[in-house]
Amino acid sequence: MFGAFRLTNPLSGGLLWKIPWRLSRHQKYRQRERLRNVDTVVATIDNALARQGQSMRKMERWKMEMPVEQEMLPKDKYTVFDRKVKRYRKGIHKVPKWTRVSQRLNPPGF
């Protein structure tokens, strides 16, 4: 009756993991914080290398292609492209390990 293997609706039947359809505003806030943290890490590395007169191809590409948090559209911050979903977008919180992976760019037009 109690413990890890108790009979609850999510465990006894099929798929009843209730992940909300949209992010809460606090989840969105933390998502923005995480995006900004990654931006600061990249900027720190870039500054440190530039001070030594060095650069990297990977870094140049990142700076050219990747938008920083302020430049991103809300659509790209909180949702991702998924070809299996109606209207091709799902909440970013449905991505496995979504708080520890970067997912900034989506296919153009979607």
């Binding site: 990654v38 890490v41 990249v42 440190a48 990297m56 990977k58 870094m59 990142w62 992976v101």
Partner: peptide
């Protein structure tokens, strides 16, 4: 500070400060 370490950090940029 070197390019090789910078590349390694970029691989784990979401996890570190």
């Amino acid at each position: 500070v070197s390019q090789s370490v910078a590349g390694q950090i970029l691989r784990i940029k979401e996890l570190v400060d």
